[in-house]
Amino acid sequence: MAFLPSVLFGQNPSASRIIEQIDKNMASKNRIMTATMIVHGQRDDRTMEMKVWSEGDKKSFTEYLSPARDKGTKMLKLADQLWMFAPSADRIIQISGHMLRQSVMGSDLSYEDMMDDRKLTDVYNAVVIGPDNIDGRPCWVLELRAKTDDVAYFMRKMWIDQDRNIPLKEEWYAKAGKLLKQTTLSDVKKLNGRWFPTKMIYKDMLKTGGGTEFVINDIQFDVNIPESIFSKAALR
C-alpha cells in the first residue's frame, strides 16, 4: 500500500534512481561469460559460441569457440580501439573508421554498437514517462535523450522491471523519431545473488530478417582476470 500514493499523484520514481539501481544490480568489477549468438538470416540461421572477458565498460576480450570456421578468432576492445585476430590468416587487423559501422559476424549489431561504453547518465538525460508492463511484469518506462552531440542514438526508451531493476526491453530512436533498433531481454535468472537477463534479441528495425539472438550460457562476476588478457599480445 505504501506504493499507492505515488501512483495516485502521478509521481514516478526518479529516473536517475532507477538507473542507479540497474547499475547496482548489473554492474560488476569484471565478468567472464560464455554465450551463444544466433543470427537469423534470410536464408538460414547461424550459431556462434563465444567466451567474453570484460572489465568495466572499457575493456573486453572475446574469443570465438565455434563454429569451426571462426574458432580461435579473437577481438580486443580497449576504450575506442578495436583489434581482431584471425588464426587462419595469422593477422591482427585494426577495425577502424567506416569498418566499425559494419555488422559483427552478420548480426544486427555493428562493431560500434558493441563499442558504446559510456555511462548512460553521462550521455543521456533520463525521465520516467510512466508505468507499463511486459509479459505480466510491471515496468517503468524510461526515456533517455542525448545531452551531448556525439551519441549514436539520439533517444532511447527502456522498460525496467520494477522489482528486479533490470531492463526488459529497449528501443533506439533516430533524431527524427524513427525507431531504428530494438532489444528484448528475457529468461531472467538469479545469478550470484542478482537478477540477470540471459537472453537478448537484437533487431534492426529497418531491415527485414529475424534479428540476432544472444543467449548467456554461463556468467561469472568479479573473478580474477589477469590484466595481460586485455592486451594485443593475448590476441595471438
Binding site: D149, D150, A152, W172, K175, K178, L180, L206
Partner: peptide, 16 residues
C-alpha cells in the same frame, strides 16, 4: 523511402 544516416558527430538519424 526511409534513409538512415549519421550526422557529423556520428549520431544516427533516419527520416523519410
Amino acid at each position: 523511402i526511409t534513409i538512415r544516416w549519421r550526422d557529423r558527430n556520428g549520431t544516427f538519424d533516419a527520416a523519410d
